[in-house]
Amino acid sequence: MLAVIPVRDGALPAGATEAADECGRRALLVGHQVEHATTHLSGEVILCEVGEYRPGAWADALARALADEPIIVLPASPDGRDLGPRLAAALDRPFFAGATEITDRTVVVPRDGGRAMHTMPAPPRLVATLQVGIRGQEPAGDAATVTSMSLDLDPGGIPIADAHVERVLAPDAATIDLAEAGRIVGGGAGLRSADQFDRLAELGDRLGASVGATRVITDRGWVGHERQIGTTGVVVAPELYLAFGISGAVQHTSGLGHPDHVISVNVDAHCPMMQLADLGVVADANVVLDELLSLLSAQAATEGVRPDA
């Protein structure tokens, strides 16, 4: 098994170490300034300096170089999700997206929006992406044994067209706020309306928490996608997470980090979010939200009245 890790400007993408660990600490770093990216890795590392990110050309060249690697795993980071399927196509192999576990015998992939897990026998040759944050990483070991490999992009023939990166933008205020927040209230499809989501923001205010959402909510446009927590959103690391009407699909929880405390309000006592929670409350999240707000304002009101005032 070999982890293929796309590197930009000497930085590892999210989930890189997990992918390497999943492959018994064998990794190939491909990209720009790859030698700077080895510090957090141990085991066997192959460096492949090829410059700017070019999924089409990389996939084509990697396919020629890695034809004999039976199992190739990429982190399900943005670049991994972009390069992975292209590499699988170039190798003409089955592709498993967002897997939660990959061994030489089985591959486990979530389906139906994270409600089900499909466990499949691993075909002899495959490419997969590993969900970020799902595995956890082993403590760093000794420094990696580093070797290099050269890749020939566009050998002769017609060059493969690729998108050109013009600029990388820093995170905007909302994403930074969310990524660094110690407390987060999150809303999911269990919330009835956009109004209800605004009430969640009000609760966030009361608790000094930032507001996050699942993809269902950002798809509905109730809040900008910079507020989406998860694989294709922001990866956060709060101490406290309050989930309202969230089922807890892997793609969401894999962006959650490891909160000290999780509260989940959901009508379904058995969904994954409830299993993750320290306190799971089986109730209508919309009504509980309203009750919480009135309870908190009632308490604020009584605290506001000083006997001597």
Binding site: V265, A277, V287, V288
Partner: peptide
């Protein structure tokens, strides 16, 4: 892992207690 089934007002109170 504690899961409780509560009417909304009680649920809100339980959450505040936990916090």
């Amino acid at each position: 892992g504690e899961t409780v089934v509560l009417e909304p007002p009680a649920a809100a109170a339980r959450i505040v207690d936990a916090l």
